[in-house]
Design a protein around this nucleic acid. Structure first.
Length: 157
DNA sequence: GCCAACGTTGGC
DNA sequence: GCCAACGTTGGC
């Protein structure tokens, strides 16, 4: 068994916030709607128990707001075949689904969000994918060092 | 295979 | 609401 991996996943709180996750049935949800190959590929490498930083994008302020974990590994995203869904993909075939999703479960919310601004100011987080110029990836890897540092900051916050 | 046009993301 | 950065599409 490989060691735990760490990730960051973005969500717009006006669409789905960490509170929405906490109030979901069994505090779980499927992470549908990802339509970016790199993000999809990262999801495909996720293992049960992998830990996730839950990030609010397009928020005021943008911030990491808590933690979730992977409770089901990648499987086909049903919304790609749903004509009525915003994420419907007419070019994806049920015999060869293009888009996957994972299920995640609420672990906890930080007492106070760790803002993007806070993270930018921290030299130890300089290498984070999130902070790279023009980075728009909605699913991205986090190193163990970054993960631990962020948890420390969140506690101190 | 190039690249212009277009759509989207997401901070500000 | 603006717009820079990025990914994708499609004509050539």
């Amino acid at each position: 068994m490989a060691s735990t991996n760490y990730w960051l996943m973005k969500s717009e709180p006006s669409t789905f916030s960490i509170d929405d996750l906490a109030q979901s049935r069994d505090q779980r949800t499927c992470w549908d709607g990802v339509r970016n190959y790199q993000a999809r590929n990262y999801m495909r490498t996720m293992a049960l128990g992998d830990q996730i930083l839950f990030y609010h994008s397009n928020a005021d302020p943008p911030a990491v707001v808590g933690i979730a974990e992977v409770v089901r590994t990648a499987y086909p995203d049903s919304t790609q075949f749903d004509k009525k869904d915003k994420h419907y993909d007419p070019t994806s075939k049920p015999s060869d689904p293009r888009w996957d999703m994972v299920d995640i479960k609420y672990v906890r919310a930080f007492p106070k969000p760790l803002t993007l601004e806070d993270m930018r100011k921290d030299p130890q987080l300089k290498g984070m994918v999130l902070l790279k110029k023009g980075s728009r990836l909605s699913v991205q890897p986090v190193t163990p060092a970054e993960w631990q540092h962020i948890l420390r900051l969140a506690k101190k916050n």
